[in-house]
């Protein structure tokens, strides 16, 4: 565990809590892609199955449980509790275009052809593209509430901090996880355009992000 890894986990937790509280307090999921949240719940489900097979540390177990509970709770809020405010018309990204290639790739490229490893690899590749429906929805509606942009900022920052963690671990302990690093780079690159808009418009400008 190093500072980048810890900061990354905290940033990830902050992002998930920001989104959950935004929906819960505003009693609305307008502008939020339910599809992305379902994909994130799927990422955590397929990645954290080792909760039942190995105990790594209290921190590891607790964080995995918190991520699982909050992601499913968020999906529940969107599709059940506040489904009246769910903007399904603008949440129109075809997730099968993500799931099929990611599943295929997980069977081709993995560390071991075992169910747990393939599911773990699937979760790594899926996480890299899981935000696409949300970013697509923002381009379709042409704007995003500032809370949503803060959510996206911390979500994008978390994997960027994981990249720093992997650089650190490579130089200090020779650790290199090719699948996670390559996927993490792709994932972070998808946020670059958003990061630019976030800094130029939300932090400096009007607090609301409206796309050109």
């Amino acid at each position: 565990m190093n500072i980048f890894r810890l900061a990354g986990d905290v940033s990830h937790l902050v992002a998930i809590i920001i989104l959950f509280l935004k929906i819960w307090k505003s009693k609305s999921c307008a502008g939020i892609s339910g599809k992305s949240q379902v994909l994130f719940a799927l990422v955590f489900t397929s990645r954290y199955l080792d909760l039942f097979t190995v105990f790594i540390s209290a921190y590891n177990t607790i964080m995995k449980l918190v991520f699982l509970v909050l992601s499913y709770a968020t999906v529940y809020l969107i599709y059940m509790r506040f489904r009246g405010s769910y903007d399904s018309e603008n949440d129109s990204f075809r997730v099968e275009f993500l799931l099929v290639p990611v599943t295929g790739l997980a069977f081709l490229e993995n560390y071991a052809f075992t169910p747990l490893e393939i599911l773990w690899t699937f979760s790594i590749f899926l996480e890299a593209v899981a935000i696409m429906p949300q970013l697509f929805m923002i381009t379709k509606t042409g704007e995003a509430e500032s809370i949503t942009t803060h959510y996206l900022f911390f979500l994008g920052l978390y994997r960027a901090l994981y990249l720093a963690n992997w650089v650190w671990r490579y130089h200090t302990e020779g650790f290199f996880d090719q699948i996670a690093v390559v996927s993490g780079v792709v994932q972070t690159i998808f946020y670059c355009d958003f990061f630019y808009l976030y800094v130029t418009r939300v932090l400096r400008g009007s607090g609301k992000m409206s796309l050109p």
Partner: peptide, 10 residues
């Protein structure tokens, strides 16, 4: 061979 994945990471 490839490293076994470090499941410690989230």
């Amino acid at each position: 061979d490839k490293p076994t994945v470090d499941k410690d990471e989230l």
